[in-house]
Design a protein around this nucleic acid. Structure first.
Lengths: 248, 248
DNA sequence: GGGCGACATTGATTTGGGTCAAAGACCCGG
DNA sequence: CCGGGTCTTTGACCCAAATCAATGTCGCCC
């Protein structure tokens, strides 16, 4: 069964499932192996949610708001598991940032067959919550933060998710263009560029070519990102008027 | 066991579980019944995700970005099931929009005990995906849409989620203030107000007091919301450069 | 290694939404 | 039914980011 090559990896690595087992075989039947190059779209079912395992590479998940407006709702890297929604209010597109290998499944059928296995459902639930968590964080950034804060926060997030060279000033290699960063942060490409320049002139980062970024001063970068420090900043009074009562 | 009163409803209505059964009893042990009034915060565990079943009423889930900046990441209404994240980058707060009755569970423990029941896990997974879906939609709106589009889209979303009076011009009763709407849409209260005025002057809506809104012209409201129409608007060419190849 | 096309940076100008300020409307309790 | 506080609306002005417009540079392919 050569088709199941990378699906094996998926089932074993993520869920600890033996692909030779009955459940492994049943899920394997639903798998589609796909390889994309930079800029290529992964074909997903417009009528149903698609479950994706990204074996290697990096992708962007974008939504089309109108002809000229795209919002990248998530970046994904090797090992990530996520879903691509069916078409609804917005059309979603999954596109490679570099050469990537992935396995796709029709979500509903996958869930039907996997329902009996608590390990798989638990893993999927936790992945889904991680995605939701990241998305809420993005909503906070898009709704409340300035351009400078968004770019600083983006660099910190990429530092956490990408492999960074160790040391006091780690260096990361961004697989996405300035345009992609802008579409992810709700900013125009020129604004992203200007914020990079500001951070460079402040000595907080340094850039190498188009994709290399050295994070020279992480504490100051975090400061620029403007994250709420619950140790120093109390909640706004009108948000906590009175304590609720437990029902006896 | 009076404490389990509304928990019964939760387990039975959502998962079809008999609370008298072993699993029902085990989950019931984890439940906390809470009642909040308008403006009160629901206390959640800062150290772990909280699973919430909103029996009746309405709530807002907000994140604190800094002292003066809040972003509402979701509104919830009776019957909704959702999670409140543990404290991380941002502090999350669940607050009543009106008198509300809800049941909370420590998420990790709930999952541990429910893992063996495929129905529950499946239901939770699907609720989680719905929340993720809504959050992505919010990210698109916050990142790419104008103030007018956001407000129109908000009214449409509330029309779908709230009970609206039937007829050609349905009327909805918003449980949240203009300030809440602004914090949800990433706009200031004055901007929200101005957009309401614009829609009223255009004859698309009418307002009654602080909370009543008549949707006089739904098609035009949908037009104002600026949703991508996949029937008329093709994808941007540079987003679909080449077709990917299936791995043989 | 040189040339070309795409990507990135920089500068000048515009503008949508924010900010500041004040007046008006709703709604609750007395 | 009236008073007062809160929420909402409206107006004048300002600023951060978008837009428009070059110029510069990277990196890929020949």
């Amino acid at each position: 069964m050569p088709k199941l090559g990378s699906c094996n990896v998926f089932l074993r690595a993520t869920f600890g499932i033996d692909p030779g087992a009955e459940i492994g075989r049943q899920l394997g039947e639903l798998a589609t192996q796909v390889q994309v190059m930079r800029g290529q779209e992964v074909q997903t079912d417009p009528a149903d949610t698609t479950l994706v395992f990204l074996a290697s590479g990096a992708t962007k998940l974008g939504a089309q708001a109108s002809r000229e407006r795209h919002q990248i709702v998530a970046f994904h890297f090797g090992g990530d598991i996520f879903t691509v929604p069916a078409v609804s209010m917005h059309r979603y597109m999954l596109i490679g940032l570099c050469e990537s290998t992935l396995t796709t499944f029709p979500a509903r059928q996958f869930y039907d067959r996997a329902a009996s296995n608590p390990w798989i459902m638990r893993a999927l639930l936790e992945r889904s919550q991680t995605a939701l968590f990241r998305c809420r964080d993005k909503a906070v950034n898009l709704g409340q933060k300035s351009a400078g804060e968004r770019v600083a926060g983006f660099l910190l997030a990429m530092w956490e998710r990408l492999d960074a060279s160790e040391g006091p000033s780690p260096m990361i290699d961004l697989p996405m263009s300035r345009g992609d960063i802008g579409e992810s942060l709700g900013l125009k490409i020129e604004t992203v560029s200007r914020q990079f320049t500001k951070l460079r002139e402040a000595g907080i980062i340094d850039t190498h070519g188009r994709s290399g970024v050295s994070l020279l001063d992480l504490p100051r970068l975090a400061e620029q990102a403007g994250y709420y420090d619950r140790n120093t900043v109390p909640p706004r009074p009108e948000w906590v008027e009175r304590k609720p009562e437990l029902v006896p």
